[in-house]
């Protein structure tokens, strides 16, 4: 906020909470670089993943699903961690941008999670012969997906937007505490119910020819997240501004 407003009267200038000019400046500076980086890494990453990299000696071309699946699964967790950080900064330091970021990130994270589930299922059909198995990892990702949906539903369930923001932020933090417990319990449950023979497929040493496309795709996904996050945050902030102006106009002040 400007000096002038401060001198006019800090106490009466309540709208400074809705004027994150500094964020917008930084975001505008970062945006073109992120967009360009995303385009480049997507192009090269997809080329390497779909054409240049070798087929797996066991899995054949099916392995190429992994170049989408693995980064999507990473992003599913990464986005949730971002949301948790934003929610914490909002609840603890009352930083309004934290919740704006978390709110903007939630649908993106939900889509990444869905993508991870869908590609996992597509991969599972030829590998396991079925679209869905109650594999420990799949099950805990499914629960993560429901946590995302719960967050979004709670955020939008209140007439008073601020209530929704606070309640959803709290839920997000509770989810962080619970995620490891859920993951751990699902692992445990899984090993109880089926002997550990099938789940050995997952982790062979990755060859360099596969590591490159994987890394590039992960970079592309991260930059995509950043681009969408900035766009969504800016539109959310403009929306809040618009509502404040509208409310003021309606009151004729």
């Amino acid at each position: 906020m400007s000096r002038a407003a401060t001198t006019v009267g800090e106490s009466r200038s309540l709208h400074r909470f809705a004027n994150p000019a500094r964020f917008v400046r930084i975001a505008d500076a970062v945006y073109p670089w992120a967009l360009a980086g995303m385009a480049v890494s997507f192009l090269i990453g997809l080329y390497l993943a779909l054409f240049a990299s070798p087929a797996d000696y066991q899995q054949g071309d099916t392995v190429r699903i992994m170049y989408v699946h693995v980064p999507a699964a990473w992003m599913a967790l990464f986005v949730y961690a971002t949301m948790a950080a934003g929610s914490a900064s909002y609840l603890i330091w009352r930083h309004p941008l934290g919740v704006v970021a978390a709110k903007a990130a939630a649908p993106v994270g939900a889509v990444f999670t869905f993508l991870a589930l869908a590609t996992g299922s597509l991969w599972g059909k030829p590998m396991w012969g079925t679209w869905w198995v109650w594999d420990a990892r799949l099950t805990s990702v499914l629960i993560l997906f429901f946590l995302y949906l719960g967050y979004i539903a709670l955020m939008n369930a209140f007439e008073n937007a601020e209530r929704g923001q606070k309640a959803a932020s709290l839920l997000c933090l509770v989810g962080v505490v619970n995620l490891p417990i859920i993951k751990f319990s699902v692992d445990w449950w899984n090993t109880l119910h089926q002997p550990a023979s099938v789940s050995r497929i997952g982790t062979p040493a990755i060859h360099e020819s596969m590591l490159w496309p994987l890394g590039l795709m992960a970079l592309a996904f991260t930059l995509y997240f950043l681009v969408v996050l900035i766009t969504r945050m800016k539109s959310e902030l403009l929306g809040a501004r618009l509502r404040a102006l509208g409310a003021a106009a309606a009151e004729g002040r």
């Binding site: 400007s2 407003a5 009267g9 200038s13 309540l14 709208h15 004027n19 000019a21 501004r241 003021a248």
Partner: peptide, 15 residues
């Protein structure tokens, strides 16, 4: 009353 939002927006000129 709080400062009207239009006045503040004009004053800050950030948007």
């Amino acid at each position: 009353p709080p400062i009207p939002v239009e006045a503040e927006a004009l004053e800050e000129g950030a948007w």
